[in-house]
Amino acid sequence: MAAGGDHGSPDSYRSPLASRYASPEMCFVFSDRYKFRTWRQLWLWLAEAEQTLGLPITDEQIQEMKSNLENIDFKMAAEEEKRLRHDVMAHVHTFGHCCPKAAGIIHLGATSCYVGDNTDLIILRNALDLLLPKLARVISRLADFAKERASLPTLGFTHFQPAQLTTVGKRCCLWIQDLCMDLQNLKRVRDDLRFRGVKGTTGTQASFLQLFEGDDHKVEQLDKMVTEKAGFKRAFIITGQTYTRKVDIEVLSVLASLGASVHKICTDIRLLANLKEMEEPFEKQQIGSSAMPYKRNPMRSERCCSLARHLMTLVMDPLQTASVQWFERTLDDSANRRICLAEAFLTADTILNTLQNISEGLVVYPKVIERRIRQELPFMATENIIMAMVKAGGSRQDCHEKIRVLSQQAASVVKQEGGDNDLIERIQVDAYFSPIHSQLDHLLDPSSFTGRASQQVQRFLEEEVYPLLKPYESVMKVKAELCL
Rank of each mutant, 00 (worst) to 15 (best):
176 I>D: 02
61 Q>V: 08
210 Q>R: 14
158 T>Y: 01
15 S>A: 15
54 G>N: 09
80 E>Y: 09
357 N>F: 07
132 L>M: 11
68 N>Y: 07
375 Q>T: 04
375 Q>A: 06
229 K>R: 05
42 L>H: 04
363 V>R: 07
214 G>V: 05
194 R>S: 08
439 Q>L: 08
317 D>Y: 00
316 M>N: 10
211 L>E: 03
244 T>S: 12
110 A>R: 02
255 L>R: 02
62 I>F: 05
369 I>P: 02
39 W>N: 06
265 I>P: 03
421 N>A: 08
135 L>V: 14
135 L>A: 08
107 H>L: 03
148 E>Q: 12
370 E>C: 08
372 R>E: 02
318 P>M: 03
361 G>W: 07
471 P>R: 15
44 L>Q: 12
285 Q>I: 14
323 S>N: 07
437 H>C: 10
184 Q>F: 08
123 I>K: 05
159 H>V: 01
341 L>W: 09
232 F>V: 02
227 T>S: 14
322 A>F: 10
390 V>D: 03
122 I>M: 07
449 F>P: 03
439 Q>M: 14
63 Q>C: 09
23 S>E: 08
312 M>Q: 10
71 N>S: 11
150 A>D: 06
304 C>A: 14
69 L>T: 09
326 W>G: 04
82 K>Y: 09
299 M>E: 00
113 C>E: 07
374 R>W: 08
113 C>T: 04
381 A>E: 11
34 Y>P: 00
233 K>D: 08
357 N>R: 06
449 F>W: 07
40 R>K: 04
294 Y>P: 03
374 R>P: 03
100 P>I: 09
11 D>A: 06
98 C>P: 08
472 Y>N: 11
343 E>A: 10
286 Q>R: 02
398 D>N: 10
38 T>Q: 07
364 V>M: 08
478 V>L: 14
204 T>F: 00
229 K>T: 06
164 Q>W: 04
154 T>S: 12
110 A>G: 15
285 Q>A: 15
360 E>D: 13
225 M>E: 11
291 A>M: 01
119 T>M: 02
231 G>V: 05
335 A>K: 04
479 K>Y: 15
241 Q>P: 00
253 S>T: 14
317 D>Q: 08
103 A>L: 10
278 M>A: 06
247 V>G: 09
342 A>L: 06
336 N>H: 02
395 S>Q: 14
147 K>M: 12
379 F>K: 07
435 P>R: 09
66 K>M: 11
364 V>W: 07
356 Q>S: 13
146 A>V: 06
92 V>S: 07
89 M>G: 01
271 L>M: 09
452 R>V: 09
343 E>I: 06
465 V>E: 00
60 E>K: 11
399 C>E: 07
410 A>H: 07
478 V>D: 15
329 R>Y: 00
